[in-house]
Design a protein around this nucleic acid. Structure first.
Ligand SMILES: [Mn+2]
Ligand SMILES: [Mn+2]
Ligand SMILES: [Zn+2]
Ligand SMILES: [Zn+2]
Lengths: 148, 148
DNA sequence: CGAGAGTTTTGGACTCAGTCAAAGTTTACC
DNA sequence: GGTAAACTTTGACTGAGTCCAAAACTCTCG
């Protein structure tokens, strides 16, 4: 019987590689985020509780921090929103954000793979990330807006 | 004697055009922001108090909101920072942000004038702003970091 | 398997930036 | 100058997240 490498296996390895313990809480948090990208800490808590019975608010935040550190999760925080977490990492993708309903949608980088890391004049800064947020209205909200 | 059109004149006109009252508080807030770009609400309060004696926290927030609305100010909010205000508006410039000291520096848009408003695939969104934040280390922080 | 070291989780108090709401004050306009 | 609308003040309140010290757990090694 062949062993199929599951997501969980990957998460476990990644945590171990970085010298972290494997806990039910951390796996539940990964599960929650992988099932709903751009999820809030609060929603993660809710989903994790459904999964493992109970988890404290603090553990959710701790787990999210560790998982971001080891590179399994990415944290974004649009203005006016609490932090959002996603498991699509390492591809430097960007986000479309609706001003009305706040929904967030992935969008591939317009420039390339390791892209947009070059500002026209970097003023001596050593840049490691270019974060792009496109603000506007999602299709639904736009329709409502003009037909009102 | 010729009348020289001051910044204050411009602020006053702009407020009036939008049907807002001219108040000492609003002018003091404009003054504060124009003297220190990327200033926090708290720092605005402090500076305004020095200018006009006293102003409540709430009035500072109210004034900042109105001034953003009429287009005299712009509000940005890097992750992990309270909101920052600046009077350089309408030029779609972007920001370099230091991960260590949090300092914020202006950088011209890499694309052009009404630029970067085109995502590769906008998924039906009607985009009105492309916000770009370049994250990294400022010259000083970078030096300290590698020589430590 | 069992013990010990080191890590993680918990719950509760706390912070910080910002908002709400009601009463008092100022501004604009006739 | 008098009036209505707009603005400011004060103080309580919220939401998201952090701090802390004690209790519980995971991992490693004998
Ligand atoms: Mn995303
Ligand atoms: Mn700026
Ligand atoms: Zn929408
Ligand atoms: Zn710095």
């Amino acid at each position: 019987m062949v062993h199929v490498r599951t997501d969980t296996d990957r998460w476990v390895d990644m945590l171990r590689e970085h010298g972290h313990h494997i806990t039910a809480q951390r796996l539940a948090v990964m599960q929650a985020v992988s099932h709903k990208p751009h999820i809030t800490a609060d929603e993660v808590a809710e989903a994790s509780r459904a999964e493992i019975g109970s988890i404290s608010k603090q553990s959710v935040y701790d787990a999210l921090h560790v998982l971001v550190q080891v590179g399994l999760l990415r944290r974004i925080q649009p203005e006016g929103s609490p932090a959002l977490f996603e498991d699509r990492v390492g591809d430097n993708h960007h986000h479309l954000i609706c001003r009305d309903c706040g929904c967030v949608v992935d969008v591939d980088c317009a420039v390339g793979d390791t892209p947009c890391l070059t500002a026209r004049n970097d003023q001596g800064f050593v840049i490691d990330e270019a974060e792009v947020a496109y603000w506007g209205r999602c299709p639904e909200c736009h329709t409502h807006h003009i037909t009102r």
